[in-house]
Write a protein that binds this DNA or RNA. Structure first.
Lengths: 178, 178
DNA sequence: GAGATTTAATTAAGGCATTTACTATCTCAC
DNA sequence: GTGAGATAGTAAATGCCTTAATTAAATCTC
């Protein structure tokens, strides 16, 4: 059974192998391993995120982004929208837009800042707090289902390698959200 | 210098530590390492993707998604929109929408399928092919900048661990795009 | 302390991807 | 072969997130 003759089995995940193979043999690109690492990283992240969103959050009426905002507010709040934007990795405008329905649903609260008339503080309501405990419980169980194929040591190595991958982002002019 | 008193240094990346710490000490969640692994995975993927998109693809007038579609068409094409959707991880409708401007710009070509009157084949034009070689060159250089903090062995371990993380996705009722 | 600059948040407009609904074609059962 | 159901692709509507413009309040300069 020749390896080149199995297009029918190709899917989102295994496409990485095809890419690696063709980039190596047909084009003279120098850094195939870099492509393989980052494609794998992206696709793993997408698969897990899509699964968590559709299994845990959508059924409860929340988007992935809403969850992220509630999550940082839960753990780092009360905080200003600007800081929530940094911690979630969204724009400030996105935080503002996402807040609206969450406030209307009674999960999130906005109160004027203490020392700055422009500022606002986001915090969870009592209901929001209880919701997060239940919600994160379900989220965390499913996270565990995903990660439990790896031993604890493997998980720590994975975290360590990803941390290392990211640490030199200062060494070149990284593009970040403003 | 107490660890609890450094909120000013907290950013998108280091938020993971705060989450880990609070989930461990203040809430009784069982699977903190799972959360740490998947938060790290997501944030690393988001950082790299955002950087590649804004440094390489946006300046050339392409979105990240457009690049993904061109990339799979380049390496696995000519192919049907349905297969392009599977390989990119988008919906068929997204492929249809994305194709339109790419065809208009002369990068992509649609031709009627051979054996099926409903079907269509997507392929790169000659211009699209040349564009991808230049574009992927730039993309690949920047990928290399990212990954070169890791040794070749570390990169292979990372790929292996991510592969392992994904392999048991069949063991529970994974949610995938239809 | 008045005017200019900077900063926080929101609003507005636009882009992109998703879901849902629709059309056309194919397959299969009878 | 005819009709029911499945499948490919597209179109329409919706949602989310981005950038740019706007409003308001702080700070800095002289």
């Amino acid at each position: 059974m020749a390896d080149e003759e199995r297009p029918a089995e190709l899917d989102f995940w295994s496409f990485i192998e095809l890419a690696h193979h063709r980039l190596a043999t047909e084009y003279g690109f120098r850094h195939q391993l870099a492509t393989e690492v980052l494609l794998t990283l992206n696709r793993a992240s997408d698969l897990v995120t899509y699964d968590l969103e559709s299994a845990v959050h959508r059924p409860r009426g929340l988007s992935w982004s809403s969850f992220r905002l509630l999550f940082v507010t839960w753990l780092a709040g009360p905080l200003e929208p600007k800081r929530a934007a940094v911690l979630t990795g969204m724009s400030r405008a996105a935080v503002s837009n996402l807040s609206k329905p969450l406030v209307a649903d009674g999960l999130l609260e906005r109160s004027p800042g203490e020392h700055d008339g422009r500022s606002v503080l986001l915090s969870l309501t009592e209901h929001g707090h209880r919701t997060m405990e239940e919600l994160f419980g379900a989220h965390n169980e499913r996270e565990y289902q995903w990660t439990s194929v790896l031993s604890e040591t493997e998980q720590r190595i994975l975290v360590m390698l990803l941390n290392k991958l990211i640490t030199n982002r200062d060494q070149f002019d990284l593009r970040e959200r403003s």
